[in-house]
Write a protein that binds this DNA or RNA. Structure first.
Lengths: 115, 115
DNA sequence: CAACAATATAGCCAAATGGCTATACATTAT
DNA sequence: ATAATGTATAGCCATTTGGCTATATTGTTG
């Protein structure tokens, strides 16, 4: 029964649903390529725990791994994050269209598209 | 062990990590306010299952509920989704800045024509 | 009031998650 | 060759998740 063809977005959003992993992505975004140790250093989790988190990010396509001797170096993979962002952006476009139809919240529209 | 003060983004991204829930949000975005039944109708899940999914969306702040007699009417809550999108957007801004600074991408392009 | 309709809640289950310790593996250093 | 370092894997555990059935709750209707 269980063969549940997982949408890639399932993995992406799930990976983003944990604060430790989001912080790892932030570190990668700020510093560029990092090793597994560097990614884990801010947390007081055990090393295998960090390893697991990294695997989740990797499965989600959010980071890519490059093995360099005994170091595993990671960097952000922009595509995956962009797809997540695009999904939300599409929703929000629909949503604002719906709002226009209904005439609700007209004062509340926080920002415009474009960017 | 640790009381883990959940970041609101944890709930938001977790809620987005399930295809059924994402589809519910799409329905809401397309049709505007919907009842619980309308949200569940496309799926062959049991009614309590739908009810649970809706609660997850609600906990995440992605939808808001308005009880109207025996009908529960839901609509999208834009703020929550926008915060998720903003988080990603910030990451992506950092990321591209990092790329610019380090120029590391150039080193790693695996094969180029000619040299 | 009784019947029906829309939802929620309780309780159960299997699978996944996030954490840990202990250990294996691979690479570098002595 | 041995030791030390960086990382992964194997188990184990408690909690959460997503699904179900059965039942309760609340509102509508005859």
């Amino acid at each position: 029964m269980a063969i549940h063809y997982q949408d890639p977005l399932d993995h992406t959003f799930h990976a983003l649903g944990d604060g430790t992993r989001r912080q790892m992505l932030t570190i990668l975004a700020e510093r560029g390529e990092c090793t597994a140790s560097e990614l884990g250093q801010p947390f007081r989790a055990a090393q295998p725990t960090i390893s697991k988190h990294i695997r989740v990010l990797e499965r989600a396509g959010l980071v890519s791994r490059r093995v360099d001797g005994r170091l595993h170096r990671f960097r952000l993979n922009p595509d995956s994050m962009r797809e997540a962002q695009d999904w939300i952006a599409r929703q929000r476009r629909f949503w604002s269209a719906t709002l226009d139809q209904l005439g609700e919240f007209l004062d509340n529209i926080p920002d415009r598209e474009s960017g």
